[in-house]
Amino acid sequence: MLDSRFVDRHIRILFPLPALLFIAIMMVFPILYTFSLSFTTWNLASGMPPRFVGLNTYIEVLKEPRFWAAMGRTFYFTFLAVGCETILGMIWALILNREFFGKEGIKLLLLLPLVSTPVAIGIAWVLFYEPTIGLANWALKSLGLMPLKWIADQNTVIPSLVLVDIWQWTPMMTLIFLAGLASLSPEPYESARVDGANGWQIFWHITVPMVVPIILTGIVLRSIDAFKTYDIIYTMTNGGPGFASETLNIYAYNLSFNYFRFGHAAVVLFFLFLIVLSFSFLVNRLKDRGHG
C-alpha cells in the first residue's frame, strides 16, 4: 500500500507523471527509434532482420534521384503555398482590421476551411478537379478559358495541390496577422499622421516593421506544417501522376508501407525532420534580429 505521505511529498512529480510518460512513449520513443532504424538496412523483401550498416543507408538514399526529386517538390510546394498564403493572409487581415458592416460574418466564413477534415477536403477537391465533369473546368469554360487537367497532369499537379492548401490555410495566416495588427499600439500612427505621412508610407514604414515578427511567426508555423503535408496529397494523387507530386513524406510512406524498406524510410524522415528543425531555427534567428 502506498504511503499517503509519499504521495504528499512527491506530488509535484506524481501529477505530471502520466503526461510525461505519454510524451515519452508517444513522441520521444518513436523519434529515437526512427533515428536508430536509419542506421540499419531492413528490407522485408529480403526476408532478413534489420542489420546495422552505419551510414550506408544514408549514402544509398542520397544517391537516389527519386529522393532529390521529392526534396525539390517538397520545397516547391512549401514555398509556393506559404508565399501565397502570407500575401493573401496579409491582404485579408488589412481588410478585416477596418470596421465595416458584416465583418464578423466574413470572419466566421473564413474559419470554415480551417475546421474541415483534410481527407474530406481532399476528396471534395478531387471532384472539383475532375477534368470532364468537375467544377473547376466548368468555371474555366464559362469564362471562355481553356480547361486544364489539374491534378491529372505532371506540370499542373503541384500548383493544383497548392491551391487546395491556400484555400485551407490562408484563414489561419489571416487570423495570426489580425491578432498582430490588433495588438499594435496607436501612438506611432498618431505621430506619423501629425507629421503628414500618407497611407502607403504609414503602412510601409510603420505597420510592416511592427508586424514583421508576427509575419515571421506565421511563416514558420505554416512552413513546418506545409513541409510535412501528407493528407491532401495522399487522398488526391497518392504522389501521382507518375511521381509528379511525390513529396518527402509521401516518398517515406511508399518506402515503408509499399516497399517495406523501413531503414530507407527512416533516413528520408530524418532529413525531413532536419529541414523542419533548421528552418524553424533559421527563422527564429531572423526574428531575434528583427527585435534587436
Binding site: E130, T132, I133, K149, W150, I151, A152, G240, P241
Partner: peptide, 21 residues
C-alpha cells in the same frame, strides 16, 4: 481515353463506366 487517366485505378475507371462516360 478520358482526360486524367494517369490518376485512374479500377475505382475511377469503374465510376466513369457506371456514369456512362
Amino acid at each position: 481515353g478520358p482526360p486524367g487517366v494517369t490518376n485512374m485505378s479500377w475505382a475511377q475507371c469503374m465510376a466513369v463506366f457506371q456514369a456512362g462516360n
